[in-house]
Design a protein around this nucleic acid. Structure first.
Lengths: 199, 199
DNA sequence: GTTGCTGCTCAACACACTGTTGATTATAGT
DNA sequence: ACTATAATCAACAGTGTGTTGAGCAGCAAC
């Protein structure tokens, strides 16, 4: 591949993220974007049809990178009875990846961000949550509400923690966050599903 | 007040919500908007500076209406030990208001929606969550994570349930949703804060 | 009902951004 | 060093914006 292509695309992506954080996606013109990226306006159209296509490519990269980075979640470990002192490895991978791309995630999941990206991230996490719920249901545990609502509840909670972590200046390490989430997951597995009666 | 003003503003608001659901806020032109609303393009500028101002006014109305509709949350009731068979009245108010303005909330909280609106809704709900947490902390209960993360967790979970309810066709009644949320809140109050060790 | 106030319509305006084109320059890969 | 191609630059029509002024329409008060 030509180095020039990669350089241009990279600077356009970084410029878009930066400008989105500053004034939001709608208020960015292609002229703004290329000025910030340090290239000509015409160059933009050699690579992308419009702003939206650039945004979608950034989001694709981030999400593909995330699922590539994170190993499989081991359900058995989550469901073990003793309080875990070690974070689930897959969650550790997730939080390390988020930390490595914190600027982009913070903008895209923030108040100037893209609701569609948030929805796609939720959809990915929901997969794991649903798998866990199915695993427990197969063992006779009754969820306290319809399973789609419970997975929406848990998924949103997890993403909410991620958003808060990013927006509050990432004052805790990925290791701490992963441990925290691991314990919440284990808690739900061992306690919540038993103590709440089905509706 | 002049009837014509109210009529025009109302039809502009409805048109914006409808069009946001169809093609997203960014892809709406003022010409689109006024065509759908059945008024002249110039008329729009007699009422609003731009699209954003109209959107903000819609959001203001919805959020003010929500807090006006919902009575105060009674913490004692939530913390009572027996599993509640009746929903918390304030939560019932909330879900009835959401149902009454479901079209607007569904669009604004959806994939074509406004992240800033979601953030404001979260901020409002977070107030109640934080009050409850403070109430329990004052009684010596140790939260399992830093209080800001716990309130982010719970707030996001609640909003996630609301979003899922709206997006999945509102197949359950406001009464059912309110009862469900009431039980989740009570569960956290009576069980979760005790069973999870502080990190 | 007539009158007067004012909200709405309509056409026109300059301005900004878009997406495309063709000619030219710069530069990475061999 | 040569060549392919990426990037630059100026210019273009097309579309949306935000504002203006003159005229029309309808609500309200009497």
């Amino acid at each position: 591949m030509d180095v020039r292509i990669e350089r241009t695309r990279q600077s356009l992506m970084e410029a878009l993220i930066t400008l989105m954080g500053e004034k939001g996606f709608d208020n960015i013109s292609v002229a703004n974007l290329t000025a910030r990226a340090g290239c000509n306006r015409g160059t933009f159209y050699l690579h992308y049809k419009d702003k939206d296509e650039l945004l979608r490519e950034i989001e694709e990269d981030l999400l593909h990178g995330l699922v590539a980075q994170a190993g499989p979640f081991s359900l058995q470990r989550v469901s073990a009875d003793q309080p875990p002192a070690e974070p689930e490895p897959a969650l550790l991978d997730v939080f390390r990846y988020l930390a490595a791309h914190a600027d982009a995630f913070r903008v895209l999941l923030g108040q100037r961000g893209d609701p569609a990206f948030l929805a796609r991230l939720k959809a990915i996490m929901r997969q794991n949550v649903s798998n866990q719920l199915a695993w427990f249901q197969a063992r006779g545990q009754q969820p306290p509400m319809p399973h789609d609502f419970l997975s929406a509840y848990l998924t949103s909670a997890h993403v909410g923690v991620i958003q808060h972590w990013l927006e509050s200046g990432m004052k805790y390490s990925p290791e701490y966050l992963a441990l925290l989430m691991t314990r919440m997951a284990r808690f739900w597995a061992s306690s919540a599903l038993q103590h709440l009666l089905p509706l």
